[in-house]
Simulated scan of single mutants.
Amino acid sequence: MSLVLRILVLLALSTGVYASDEQRLPKWELGVGLSAFSLPDYPSADQDQTYVLPFPYIIYRGERLKAGRDGLRGLLFESGRWDLDISAGGSLPVNSEDNRAREGMDDLNVSLELGPSLRFKFIDTPEQKIQLRLNLRALLAADDFPSLDYEGWLFNPELRWRQHYGERYVLGSSLQLRYGSRDYHNYFYGVAPRFVTASRPSYQAERGYNSAGVSAYAAAKLDRNWRITASVSYYDLHDAAFNDSPLFRKNSGAYIGFSISRILWRSKTTVGPARIDDVAL
């Protein structure tokens, strides 16, 4: 599972709050934060990594381009309860020499997941949102940065809920399913003949079911500039299309994260509630 994002997990961990209908907010806000999170080397890995990293706090309330808790979004189409945008996720690199299952294999590079997201809004009020998102993303790996290599696609239906409590607190959760292409699964779980060992046979993954997951987060505004957030995600890989891979070690896993951030700069230009409402801070 990509933590919404792993390479963009730092952005995904940034937080803010809802503004009332009468209030206008800066078009953009910039700051810095510190994030601590723990996640498996890759989904089904039996080794975890813990990171403590600085990250840029970015909020942008553009008419078509938006940035916030959901990462970077580009709105392509909007009509009533439906809209279509571009969403992004990603993953952090994995040094194969530090992972027992992958020792001697190529590293997993920094990657980007990018593609369209079709959203249906069951409930869409300033206080509460329930949305079905149908995400289709291409996996682009930085094998020779800054060039990106296509490594397959992922279909990721997602049901999201978000609730604002006044102007200081936000709770949210999501349920997800993931279905991947053959190339996508091979990127993480395939074993080429040159990497075969006595305990690691050659393996080619197939297209099919990837995983199911649930996540939750809580965010709070301490004052005008300081924000904190905590998040947890759990994924289940039982019956995954690649569960016979020699790199498949666990049927489930979890991500845990915490961050604190401070806004340093705000634009003098402000936007009204219509622009604010669609940014999940």
Rank of each mutant, 00 (worst) to 15 (best):
V17N: 10
T270Q: 12
R168W: 13
Y42F: 07
W226F: 06
P26E: 08
L75Y: 02
P201T: 01
F242H: 01
L10P: 00
N251T: 15
V214G: 04
L108W: 03
I58Y: 03
D144E: 11
D41C: 13
L10Q: 14
W161E: 07
G172N: 05
G16L: 03
I86F: 00
L10F: 09
R262Y: 07
T197E: 06
S173P: 13
Y235D: 14
E97R: 07
P246E: 01
Y217E: 15
P193W: 05
D48C: 01
K250T: 06
N243C: 01
Q47E: 10
D278E: 05
L247V: 02
F155A: 08
G16I: 07
Y18E: 14
T125C: 05
S117G: 05
A192C: 05
P56H: 11
N225L: 06
K250A: 07
F120D: 01
G272P: 03
V9F: 09
R102S: 02
Y217C: 02
R137H: 01
V232N: 09
L75G: 08
M105K: 06
A254P: 05
N186R: 01
K129L: 03
I58N: 02
A19T: 15
G62W: 00
Q23Y: 03
P146F: 03
D239L: 14
D236V: 11
L5H: 12
S202D: 13
N186S: 09
S35H: 10
N95W: 02
T15S: 09
